[in-house]
Design a protein around this nucleic acid. Structure first.
Lengths: 95, 95
DNA sequence: ACACGTGAAACGTATCACGTTACGTTCATT
DNA sequence: AATGAACGTAACGTGATACGTTTCACGTGT
C-alpha cells in the first residue's frame, strides 16, 4: 500500500473543521488555549501536530487524538521517505 | 477504548526483534547505520522512535514504518494525557 | 590480569514546537 | 477617510528531543 502525497494535517484541519464552522483563527486559537501564531503555523503547513496539540483537537472536536496523529504520522513518513531515499540498512530478520 | 500503560516501543523492539535474533546492540546499531548510543537509548526507553528510525527498522525487519510509529504514537498520547491532565479546551464542534 | 562488550553519562549540534512581540496587509464597519 | 479586526509572517528566546563522539564503569570470557 502506497501513500501518494498525503496532505498536510493542517490543511485537513482547516478544510474539515474550521471552514465549516466559520470560526476565525484568532478565536479558535483562544478556544484551544494556544497562541494564534501556533495555530496559524499548523494551518499553513509550517508546523506539525504535536501529541499535546492532538489532545487539544480531540477535546475541541470530540474526536480521538489518534486520528490527528495518524495523519501526522503518514505525512512524516512520506516526508522521511523523500528525504532519506538512499538509506542503507542491512536486513536483520530472515527473509 | 482506553490505553493502559502502553509499553515503550524500545522495549518491544528489544523483546520482539533483538532478543530472538541474539544480536548485540553494537552489531544491530552498525547494521541500522546509527550509533550504539542512539540504539541503546531507544532500547532503554530514553529516546523515542523518530520517523527516520522507523524507516530504518522497517527496512531491517521487513515491516512497515507505520507499525513502529503507531506504537510510538500511542505511547506519546498516553504520556501527553498523563502530563496534560488539566487541559482546558473549549468545545468547538456541536455535540 | 587483560581485553572486550555493554550500559550510561557528559558534551555538543541540529531540529522543532511553542510563546511573546511586532510589523504590514487586507477587509469591513464607522 | 479612518479605525479596528483578522491574518500571515518575521525575530527572538526557551525547552524538548534526536543524534553523534567520547569516555567511564561494570561485567564476562580468555
Amino acid at each position: 500500500m502506497k501513500m501518494h502525497n498525503p496532505p498536510h494535517p493542517g490543511e485537513v484541519l482547516r478544510e474539515l473543521c474550521f471552514e465549516p464552522l466559520g470560526i476565525t483563527v484568532t478565536a479558535a486559537a483562544k478556544a484551544l488555549g494556544i497562541s494564534r501564531k501556533t495555530l496559524s503555523a499548523i494551518l499553513n503547513g509550517k508546523a506539525g501536530i504535536s501529541p499535546e496539540m492532538a489532545l487539544r483537537l480531540s477535546k475541541a472536536f470530540d474526536t480521538s487524538p489518534e486520528s490527528w496523529l495518524n495523519q501526522q504520522m503518514h505525512y512524516d513518513i512520506w516526508q522521511a521517505e523523500k528525504v532519506h531515499k538512499d538509506l542503507k540498512v542491512q536486513k536483520l530478520a530472515v527473509a
